[in-house]
Simulated assay, not measured.
Amino acid sequence: MFLPDNMKNTTEEANADNLRKKAYANIEKWSMEIIPERIRKGVQISVQEVQCGDPDCAPIDTAIAILFPAGGRGMMGLPLEAHEVTKEILEENFPYGEVLEKWAKGEDAEWPPMEDMMGQLPELRFDVGDKVECRVGADEVTGWAKGEVIQLWYREQGWQDGSFAPYKIRLDDGRDIFAPADVDQVIRAQKK
């Protein structure tokens, strides 16, 4: 038995929606596990995918809002689709205790903190001149373009304080883009 094309699309959309909802639930659960128990009560986590129309960013980001009962709140984003987010990736990028404590009290706190970004930038996997492939499209197989790293710790005017992109890349077609995270889902070594 064969399904008509319009039934296939409906089934595919429903499967994708179920996968996304399951990923959202996992991210919410993992986020709650990361937040210290003493400030966890009443916290609300909201997860959603955000499509980026800017050709220089990941096609889809996962945005995570953390809302505390005292009115404090924070937001973080991962340049990945929700189903690509693992607990390990979330833990590596999640705000740490001091920031969470301030948000829990209703105070403002930068994430990532500017002082952490300056002088303590993490070691990157690639260096200037390395040949890489960057995710530039939604398709996990064909949505990649080859290029070369031309700058480390790139930032643009108008970006929020403390915001950096690990890499600026010149694609083989001449366009300059940036990789918003140093993870294989966004940037990887060129296949030989």
Rank of each mutant, 00 (worst) to 15 (best):
I35G: 02
I35C: 03
I35V: 07
P36F: 04
P36S: 05
P36K: 01
E37Q: 13
E37T: 08
R38M: 02
R38K: 13
I39N: 06
I39R: 07
R40C: 00
R40L: 03
K41Y: 07
G42A: 10
V43S: 08
Q44T: 14
Q44G: 12
I45F: 08
I45T: 05
I45P: 05
I45D: 02
V47K: 06
V47F: 08
Q48M: 09
E49Q: 13
Q51K: 14
C52Y: 06
C52I: 06
G53S: 04
G53P: 11
D54W: 11
P55N: 07
P55F: 14
P55T: 04
C57L: 09
C57W: 09
A58D: 00
A58P: 01
A58S: 12
P59H: 02
I60F: 05
D61N: 08
T62R: 01
T62S: 02
A63K: 13
A63L: 12
I64K: 06
A65V: 04
I66R: 08
L67Y: 12
L67F: 13
L67E: 12
L67D: 14
F68N: 06
F68T: 04
P69F: 08
P69T: 06
A70D: 12
G71C: 09
G71A: 09
G72C: 06
G72W: 11
G74Y: 10
G74A: 09
M75C: 12
G77D: 13
G77Q: 15
L78K: 03
P79T: 01
P79Y: 03
E81A: 07
E81S: 04
H83N: 08
H83Y: 13
H83Q: 06
E84D: 05
T86F: 05
T86G: 03
T86I: 00
K87Y: 04
E88I: 01
E88K: 14
I89N: 01
I89Q: 07
L90M: 02
E91D: 03
E92Y: 10
N93H: 14
N93F: 11
Y96L: 10
G97D: 13
G97Q: 10
E98L: 08
V99F: 07
V99A: 10
L100S: 06
W103H: 09
A104H: 14
A104K: 06
A104C: 07
K105C: 00
K105Y: 10
K105S: 01
G106K: 05
E107I: 02
E107Y: 10
E107T: 02
D108Q: 14
A109P: 09
A109F: 09
A109G: 07
A109I: 03
A109T: 05
A109H: 10
E110V: 05
W111K: 08
W111S: 14
W111R: 07
W111V: 05
W111E: 08
P113T: 03
E115V: 13
M117F: 11
M117Y: 11
M117D: 02
M118F: 15
M118G: 02
G119R: 12
Q120K: 15
Q120A: 15
Q120I: 06
Q120R: 15
